[in-house]
Amino acid sequence: MAAPELAAPVEDDPAPEGDVVARVGPRRVRGHWIGIPALGLALLALWQLAGPVFGVASTLIPPPLEVVAAFGELLTSPIFYRHLWVTVQEIVLAFVVGSAAAFLLGVAVVTSRVFEKTVMPYVVALQIVPKIALAPLFLIWLGYGIPSKAVFAGTIVFFPMLVNTVQGLKSLDPNHEEMLVSFGASKRAIFWHGRLPSAAPFVFAGLDIAAVFAITGAVVAEFIGAQAGLGYQLIQFNFQFFTAGTFAVIVLLSVLGWLLHMAVLLAERTVTFWRPAPRRGAAA
């Protein structure tokens, strides 16, 4: 229907006014700010209509308004905050302890030959073990509470962080290293003035991965065996065919992930202020 009207684009006027080249920048920015919410709203509308129009059962795909309602329900239920708090603790523990341990081991590996030769082979061997297979063991060893989830998520966080740290600490430009050596820098001075700062971008890339892995790890661990937490609640909702609730929990987990990502980004910008901005205007 209404095909002729659709032919005329309404939202983004393409009329080139004079110098097109000069307008490329601002136009792209405008498309960015209008386009993203517009597309999002369109998809939400389509999703809301999918049920009534195409007859999709709301237990399979609940319409967004139902998800919003479920979200509201969650936020007003005290038990939900207990679940949230459990999972947040697991995530933060896994993220902080897992990445800190990986960072320290990375430093040890790079600064000590002996360490690299003796410990690293075991680390590499352990890395091959599918971590998910360890989850039931952690359950036996540490019980159904927070520790088993934090430890499991922590092991998942650990390896990418370790790899990034080692790679980063080895990324010091050999010319910069030689300059430091020529001015009489000790191994320690080379580490503080050279290796550590040169590792920062790698470490933050590792932390960004670690943030996602910590959340995934905590939720998966709760799937495997738990009595509380958002992953546990998600499974509960699923069993009860309360799909809107499941969706709400997924949205919430995504928000947690986004918050952690933003925290990492903020820390990165503060610490690696010395890096040239990649492209100004586009991201900020």
Binding site: D173, N175, H176, E178, M179, V181, S182, F183, G184, H193, G194, P197, S198, A200, T272, W274, R275
Partner: peptide, 19 residues
Amino acid sequence: GPSARTAMVFQAANLLPWK
């Protein structure tokens, strides 16, 4: 080894980007 009597200016500036 490197000594305090000498100082080198390299072919590249070799300034540390974080300082």
